[in-house]
Amino acid sequence: MLGTAPEGARPQGRYRGCDDDDRRVVAGAGHRYGGSAEQVLRYYDEAAPAAGWRGTEVPGCFAKEVDGTTAYLTVEGPEGGVLLVEVLADREASAMC
């Protein structure tokens, strides 16, 4: 999901990291995007379930089981013309959205 974005979005960079203390991982991607937040949500409301993610009660947040851990896909923006897409997970089963 980090490589997919609404039409007209331009990749701006990716990042990843982990925290050994929390056993938390994060991977994300930024995209330059001139569209609206509504367009972003509409796009991911279709693209995420097609890739096996299920919606949550929080708009722009999706969940998926990966190797016994719940991973969360979050979509934010575009704020200041930047759309952020992140995947977060930890072994403590924390709610990430």
Rank of each mutant, 00 (worst) to 15 (best):
P6G: 09
P6L: 11
E7D: 02
E7R: 08
G8C: 05
G8D: 08
A9K: 14
A9Y: 11
R10W: 02
R10Y: 02
Q12M: 04
Q12A: 07
G13N: 01
G13E: 01
Y15K: 04
Y15D: 08
R16H: 14
G17R: 06
G17D: 02
G17A: 06
G17C: 01
C18W: 10
C18P: 06
C18T: 15
C18R: 14
D19I: 07
D19R: 09
D20P: 01
D20W: 00
D20H: 00
D21K: 13
D21N: 15
D22P: 11
D22Y: 12
R23N: 11
R23W: 09
R23D: 14
R24F: 01
R24V: 05
V25D: 00
V25Q: 00
V25R: 02
V25A: 03
V26G: 09
V26E: 11
A27Q: 05
A27T: 01
G28C: 15
G28Q: 11
G28Y: 12
A29S: 06
A29C: 03
G30P: 10
H31K: 12
R32H: 05
R32T: 01
R32E: 02
R32Q: 02
R32I: 02
Y33P: 03
Y33S: 04
G34M: 11
G34P: 08
G34E: 13
G35P: 03
G35H: 06
E38W: 05
E38N: 08
E38L: 07
E38I: 06
E38P: 04
Q39N: 12
Q39M: 13
Q39E: 13
Q39C: 13
V40A: 08
V40T: 09
V40S: 06
L41W: 04
L41H: 11
L41P: 07
R42P: 00
R42E: 04
R42W: 02
R42S: 03
Y43G: 03
Y43S: 04
Y43F: 14
Y43A: 05
Y44K: 04
Y44V: 06
Y44H: 03
Y44I: 07
E46L: 12
A47M: 12
A47K: 10
A48W: 03
A48T: 05
A48I: 03
A50K: 13
A50Y: 12
A51L: 09
